Lab assay of single mutants.
Amino acid sequence: GSMEQGFLPKGWEVRHAPNGRPFFIDHNTKTTTWEDPRLKIPA
């Protein structure tokens, strides 16, 4: 929902695949990933 959306880094969006699995869109680089960007520790 909109709650989890608010925690994503700037430029990211979460969508759900037809099977219900969430995936993440990085509008900054125009890419998608199954990995939650929030789980990655910034270098």
Rank of each mutant, 00 (worst) to 15 (best):
G1I: 12
G1F: 10
G1R: 03
G1K: 07
G1H: 11
G1Q: 10
G1E: 11
G1P: 12
G1V: 11
G1A: 12
G1W: 09
S2H: 13
S2T: 12
S2W: 13
S2A: 15
S2R: 08
S2I: 13
M3K: 13
M3C: 09
M3L: 14
M3F: 13
M3D: 14
M3E: 11
M3A: 13
M3V: 13
E4Q: 13
E4P: 15
E4T: 12
E4Y: 11
E4C: 15
E4W: 14
E4K: 10
Q5K: 11
Q5R: 09
Q5D: 13
Q5E: 12
Q5F: 14
Q5S: 11
Q5Y: 12
Q5G: 13
Q5H: 14
G6M: 10
G6P: 10
G6E: 11
G6W: 12
F7A: 15
F7Q: 15
F7M: 15
F7L: 14
F7R: 15
F7T: 15
F7P: 15
F7K: 15
F7S: 15
L8F: 06
L8H: 02
L8V: 05
L8K: 01
P9S: 04
P9C: 07
P9D: 05
P9F: 05
P9W: 06
P9M: 06
P9E: 06
K10C: 15
K10L: 13
K10G: 09
K10I: 12
K10W: 10
K10H: 12
K10Y: 11
K10R: 10
K10F: 12
G11E: 03
G11I: 01
G11N: 06
G11Y: 03
G11R: 01
G11P: 01
G11S: 02
G11L: 00
W12C: 02
W12D: 04
W12F: 03
W12N: 03
W12A: 00
E13F: 01
E13C: 07
E13A: 00
E13W: 00
E13K: 00
E13T: 04
V14Q: 10
V14S: 04
V14K: 08
V14M: 15
V14R: 05
V14A: 06
V14E: 10
R15L: 10
R15Q: 10
R15Y: 08
R15M: 09
R15N: 06
H16D: 07
H16E: 09
H16Y: 15
A17V: 06
A17H: 09
A17W: 05
A17G: 09
A17R: 05
A17Y: 07
A17P: 05
A17E: 09
A17N: 07
P18A: 12
P18F: 07
P18Y: 08
N19P: 02
N19W: 04
N19F: 01
N19G: 09
N19L: 01
N19Q: 03
G20K: 05
G20W: 00
G20R: 02
G20D: 03
G20M: 03
G20I: 01
G20H: 06
R21L: 07
R21V: 10
R21W: 05
R21D: 08
R21T: 10
P22I: 09
P22W: 05
P22Y: 07
F23T: 04
F23G: 02
F23P: 01
F23Y: 15
F23E: 06
F23I: 09
F24W: 11
F24T: 00
F24D: 02
F24I: 01
F24G: 00
I25A: 02
I25K: 04
I25P: 02
I25G: 02
I25T: 04
D26V: 00
D26E: 03
D26G: 00
D26C: 08
D26L: 00
D26K: 01
D26Y: 04
D26R: 00
D26A: 00
H27F: 07
H27L: 08
H27P: 05
H27N: 08
H27V: 08
H27D: 04
H27T: 09
H27A: 03
N28S: 06
N28M: 06
N28K: 07
T29F: 04
T29Q: 06
K30E: 09
K30P: 02
K30S: 10
K30T: 06
K30W: 06
K30A: 14
K30G: 15
K30F: 07
T31W: 06
T31K: 07
T31Y: 07
T31F: 08
T31P: 01
T31E: 08
T32N: 05
T32V: 15
T32D: 03
T32I: 15
T32R: 09
T33S: 08
T33M: 05
T33H: 08
W34N: 04
W34Q: 03
W34K: 03
W34T: 06
W34Y: 08
W34D: 05
E35F: 11
E35D: 13
E35K: 10
E35T: 08
E35L: 14
D36R: 01
D36S: 02
D36G: 01
D36H: 04
D36L: 01
D36Y: 03
D36I: 01
D36M: 02
P37K: 01
P37R: 00
P37T: 01
P37V: 03
P37M: 02
P37E: 03
P37D: 01
P37Y: 01
R38K: 04
R38E: 04
R38Y: 05
R38H: 03
R38V: 05
R38P: 04
R38N: 05
R38C: 07
R38G: 06
R38Q: 04
L39V: 12
L39P: 09
K40Y: 13
K40M: 14
K40H: 15
K40E: 11
K40I: 14
K40V: 14
K40W: 14
I41D: 14
I41Y: 14
I41H: 14
I41T: 12
I41N: 14
I41S: 13
I41G: 13
I41V: 14
P42L: 09
P42H: 11
P42R: 06
P42F: 10
P42A: 11
P42T: 11
A43E: 12
A43S: 12
A43F: 12
A43P: 13
A43T: 12
A43M: 14
A43G: 13
